[in-house]
């Protein structure tokens, strides 16, 4: 049975308009702060060139002027905003190309990894969380609690290194990277298999890292709802166990889970940076690390802005999902 729409509904269009204005202000604030902090950081991309006797100080100064680094911060910011409107998102000093084209490829790789990991983690966590909530205090609940506690206590870094160690010892899977050498010469099916083999270690790490948090949230939300009188009433009407858990209790327990799902979406670009660096996945993680070390500031700002956009998108998605799922949020009486 689907929840009904009731009278006194708030205007979704007005709500979305308000959220869009908030999002724009947030992006503006994030870009200003990124610029401010990057200018406060000591050194610049061209400082290392000054140490090279083969490059004259005049050449370094000319390069700084070419990229606008000799300009005051407000001027640089305005130039960067203009480049955003041109679709370039600034210019990478290290790669000598617009940041957007650089980010697009890396973000695609990151999203392939994180979307798959997020989908798998939720697909595993929801049924397990629902099940153990209904088996409170029994052996399977205790086993799940112990397992999630163990996983929570192991840092993502250790998980990734442990899995890499296993892979190296067993030679079962390729180590590091996204594809094998000679990938272009492979057939379509072999390409998929090769990519899948490279995905296993980083995806497993990300799934294992997020699983305990998701399972515990699902369990806690479900346990609260399972005590509710309307669930007891549904039991009294003779509803089957699976239908009670998944069709009645789970939708009623969904609100905090939807908010958590929004956070998962928000972290799609930024949640896997460490794992990407450790497993050599050519996503945004290694690019950001490299850009930070070399002070390729427009790349850093680009990654920060892309992450902020996903944060806003995740939050907006969660709000829209809550609006659809819960009539109490839609009504003025809530």
């Amino acid at each position: 049975m689907m929840p009904s729409m009731t009278s006194g509904v708030k205007s979704p269009i007005r709500y979305l308009e308000r959220r869009a204005i908030h999002a724009l202000l947030l992006l503006l604030g994030a870009s200003l702060l990124s610029f401010l902090f990057s200018s406060l950081a000591p050194g610049s991309f061209f400082d290392e060139m000054k140490l090279n006797p083969q490059i004259s100080p005049e050449t370094v100064a000319a390069l700084r002027a070419q990229y606008g680094l000799d300009q005051p911060l407000p001027v640089r910011y305005v130039r960067w905003v203009k480049s955003v409107f041109r679709g370039e998102w600034g210019y990478s000093f290290a790669y000598n190309q617009p940041v957007r084209s650089l980010l697009m490829v890396r973000a695609r790789n990151t999203l392939l990894l994180t979307t798959l990991a997020m989908a798998l983690a939720w697909l595993i966590a929801v049924p397990i969380g629902v099940w153990i909530a209904s088996r409170r205090g029994r052996w399977d609940d205790q086993l799940a609690s112990a397992s999630t506690s163990l996983l929570l206590s192991v840092p993502e870094l250790v998980l990734a290194l442990g899995l890499l160690y296993l892979v190296i010892r067993t030679h079962a899977l390729p180590v590091g990277g996204m594809v094998s050498t000679g990938f272009d010469r492979l057939g379509s099916w072999e390409k998929v298999r090769d990519l899948a083999a490279h995905l296993i270690v980083p995806v497993t790490t990300l799934v294992l890292a997020s699983l305990p948090i998701l399972i515990r949230h699902v369990r806690a939300s479900m346990m609260e709802v399972l005590q509710a009188p309307f669930i007891q009433a549904a039991r009294g009407h003779g509803i089957g166990r699976s239908r009670l858990l998944f069709c009645y209790a789970l939708p009623a327990a969904a609100n905090p889970l939807i908010s958590l799902f929004g956070l998962s979406v928000a972290g799609l670009l930024s949640g896997s940076l460490l794992v990407e660096v450790i497993t050599g996945w050519p996503g945004l993680g290694p690019l950001l690390l490299e850009a930070c070390f070399s002070r390729d500031i427009y790349v850093v700002i680009g990654v920060v802005m892309a992450s902020t956009m996903f944060m806003i998108l995740g939050s907006l998605l969660a709000d829209v999902m809550l609006l659809v799922a819960d009539p109490r949020i839609r009504t003025d009486h809530a």
Binding site: T6, A228, F230, D326, P327
Partner: peptide
């Protein structure tokens, strides 16, 4: 209030 599912009419 608790005995009636708030999502339903």
């Amino acid at each position: 209030a608790g005995a009636l599912d708030p999502r339903f009419s």
